[in-house]
Design a protein around this nucleic acid. Structure first.
Lengths: 193, 193
DNA sequence: CGGTCTCTTGACGGAGTTCAAAGCTAGTGG
DNA sequence: CCACTAGCTTTGAACTCCGTCAAGAGACCG
């Protein structure tokens, strides 16, 4: 829980006080998730965004053939959810589940809005998080339309080497938009990183 | 210019008054761009975000081989810029230029921040714009990692048929991450849309 | 142990790229 | 009004990267 306080203060101009943090905390629901447990299932409305205190999660969608496509990977200090469903209240096409046993803080849209009004630090944190998210997705689009599989993987190693120890290769492959076999071959061409 | 007022009010909860809009307008610089003229060049810092009143623009980056990769396409009522460079003041890797003769409203980061504080309607507009942007990029990532070229094009027709009349095929192809030849062949398989 | 999950390797096939050539269109200047 | 050019689209042929399918080999866990 201290991790969350630190996270907010790292992203805010003025730190939030201990007392304010107590109030803020009250707007979240703490939840434990076992491996494979869903945070969001295809067809549901995403009613909570989750701040990950501990663990690892994945967001994916399943196509007509039943193949899973990893859209995002999350670990500690990341936010997991489906923005579209969360803000439009539309049923989500994504699934989010725990890849490791995890602990998360859940917040509703309503409470999030309320907190941005109560605590400037919280609002600033959200804004910064948004910026980071925007930049990251822009990079990912750029790389996915213009790089080869090999470069995308090299790029992934630069940006997200922390995922490597947490997720198996076939998950990473799917995240990169390639098959596990292709990733395996790419890795065996490199001497080693 | 009325278009911009309308745009803000369409995206805000409470409309902005005529008088306020005058003040707001004063924080923008009006600029005309001739076809092929740059709004942002590779290596520069993106000091302005541009609201497009009229015209069409493209954002792209050039790889080591000198090939252009279209990252975004913009027409009237869109915002063009490089978020990463704009907020971090880092040199941009992208180019943005006018595809048609265009008219834009430029705003600095400083002025944008100021306006969000002065006018709630402006802030709400930015937030909504962000949401839309986030949802769109998420969809684009999903489609680029999991769809075939043909499906990506079908998807593009659904979402952005308005671009079809404004940009030539080789630009659209690059936007989709495929070659102009492939796009040409895909189009000739369909009866017609 | 025996199952489930994971990674690797090989052979084949297909989607998409590359390169080259030709046709098509619209704009420009004589 | 025609000739010329530049930009755009199409088509074909060869090639390449990557996906698919199939099989085997570790690794981990109950």
């Amino acid at each position: 829980m201290q991790a969350f306080l630190k996270y907010i203060n790292d992203h805010a101009l003025k730190p939030i006080s201990k007392e304010d943090f107590e109030v803020l905390q009250g707007h979240f629901v703490y939840k434990k998730l076992r491996k494979k447990q869903y945070l969001l299932e295809n067809g549901e409305v995403c009613r909570y965004f989750a701040f990950i205190l501990k663990g690892a999660m994945r967001k994916y969608y399943v196509d007509e053939k039943g193949t899973e496509h990893i859209v995002n990977l999350f670990i500690e200090n990341w936010w997991a959810g489906d923005t579209e469903s969360f803000t439009m209240l539309s049923p989500s096409i994504y699934n989010i589940d725990a890849w490791e046993d995890s602990e998360v803080l859940l917040i509703t849209h309503e409470n999030a809005t309320k907190l941005t009004k109560l605590f400037p630090a919280f609002k600033e944190m959200l804004l910064k998080m948004d910026e980071k998210h925007k930049i990251a997705t822009q990079k990912r689009i750029t790389s996915s339309i213009s790089f080869t599989a090999e470069k995308r993987y090299a790029n992934f190693l630069d940006c997200h080497s922390d995922f490597l120890q947490r997720f198996p290769q076939h998950i990473i492959a799917s995240y990169l938009g390639i098959t596990k076999e292709t990733l395996s071959r790419i890795r065996n061409q490199f001497p080693q990183k």
